[in-house]
Design a protein around this nucleic acid. Structure first.
Ligand SMILES: [Mn+2]
Ligand SMILES: [Mn+2]
Ligand SMILES: [Mn+2]
Ligand SMILES: [Mn+2]
Lengths: 222, 222
DNA sequence: TATTATTTTTAGATTAGCCTAAATTTTAAA
DNA sequence: TTTAAAATTTAGGCTAATCTAAAAATAATA
């Protein structure tokens, strides 16, 4: 059991998240630097350290990817983050826009026992308050089969299944327009000019949302 | 709102705890070094920094004490520690010997909102699983009026009100002899030779405990 | 009161994790 | 294919938090 610093854990977590939206799981230095809000030079330094610890495969000027060990750790950090978010919303009655920043701290508490008991206490939830899947103790995610609302088809009935939790502003916007997870969404029209989308919510409320908003929302078919 | 590092918070917390058992609230460098398991040189360095931040009053070669601000912060850290311990035992079913180390981490999570909601969630508990008083949001402790079992009188009925939580070994010993908070304790005899104490627990179980054990137990009169 | 022992501070180093500026490598454009 | 731009790494520096060894101050003892 290698003990990592919170900083190292964050690197692995972000490499994991970026690798999921990159080709062949290769993450570029600058993308990490942007995500972490650090200089590229700092990132290079840390990648060398993580490479020495065999947590990442790093090739100069090419990019970085997680090793098996690195992946396992990254997934466990995500598990902790999402379980804590679930606790904060379900039990402590935080709103979904308030929990990310606190979970960023709590995810680094080192105690397997603690997170196992928390998982048990919460009844082994499969998804967090933003619809993100919570990996189990073995690191297995339950897949949700969602598509981005921006890519969804016209006239089909969907459910809001997952939202991007990292922007409190976006979640507050959803609060304001009273859109929640599991609400029904049907796309009435897409405007070609500015890519705004006309949607019907829960078969009664109609509204227009921007492309930007739609790209942060993920839906599944009913 | 000054944001302190976990290290700085720990210094304030330990200065507070040591000041409570010292004369005129003055804490010596070496005592802090022993508590923190750091070198005395490191302690001197940090005391200068905390002094610059007006969190402690530090006089070279003499000792250190908390300023008003330093005291407030120290008490809030203790509050967090004890509320977390309470949560871990009450809700997550940890035993009292398992929670201190985890609470040492959790006490440094920075979020007033979080600890306020946790306090509410737990029903504003006044004492933690070890019988230590939990200061309220304003930093006020409810006093317990306890005396050390080593100093308690013969033949009087007491309740076990508070134990030293920092040694898991001691708490495990109490588990083994099945002694819990609020158990009745009467001192039957004190042996002058080795200062062992004969006690009667809950009016039915008799046993001998060492001076060392008695010094870690605090009782109140029934 | 001198001398010795203990405590505390100072001096100088080290490591983790950041930075900026300069150099290098890769990619894109002309 | 040469040149310019962009991405990345290297070099050198900084701060927080630790350390050890040496110096200085205080306390204890003869
Ligand atoms: Mn989150
Ligand atoms: Mn989330
Ligand atoms: Mn404790
Ligand atoms: Mn306690």
């Amino acid at each position: 059991m290698i003990l990592l610093s919170a900083v190292e854990e964050n690197y692995l977590k972000y490499i994991f998240q970026l690798s999921e939206i990159s080709d062949r799981g290769i993450v570029k230095t600058n993308d990490l630097a942007y995500k972490l809000e650090h200089s590229a030079a700092s990132v290079t330094d840390m990648l060398k350290k993580l490479s020495d610890k065999k947590l990442v495969a790093y090739k100069k000027y090419y990019g970085v990817s997680l090793t098996k060990t690195g992946l396992q750790i990254a997934v466990q950090v995500l598990r902790k983050h999402r379980l804590w978010e679930t606790f904060l919303v379900k039990n402590l009655k935080f709103t979904w826009d308030q929990v990310h920043a606190i979970a960023e701290q709590l995810e680094h508490i080192q105690s397997d026992e603690l997170i196992d008991r928390m998982d048990e206490y919460l009844g082994h939830p499969k998804f967090d308050p933003h619809g993100d899947p919570i990996p189990d103790k073995q690191g297995v995610f339950s897949s949700a089969n969602v598509i981005c609302l921006a890519d969804a088809k016209l006239k089909k009935q969907y459910l809001l299944a997952n939202v991007n939790d990292e922007s409190s502003a976006f979640l507050k916007y959803l609060n304001k327009i009273q859109l929640k997870l599991n609400d029904k969404i049907k796309i009435l029209d897409k405007e070609e000019f500015d890519e705004t989308i006309q949607i019907m919510i829960n078969e009664k409320k109609q509204m227009t949302i921007s492309k930007d908003a739609a790209q942060n929302m993920f839906v599944k078919v009913v």
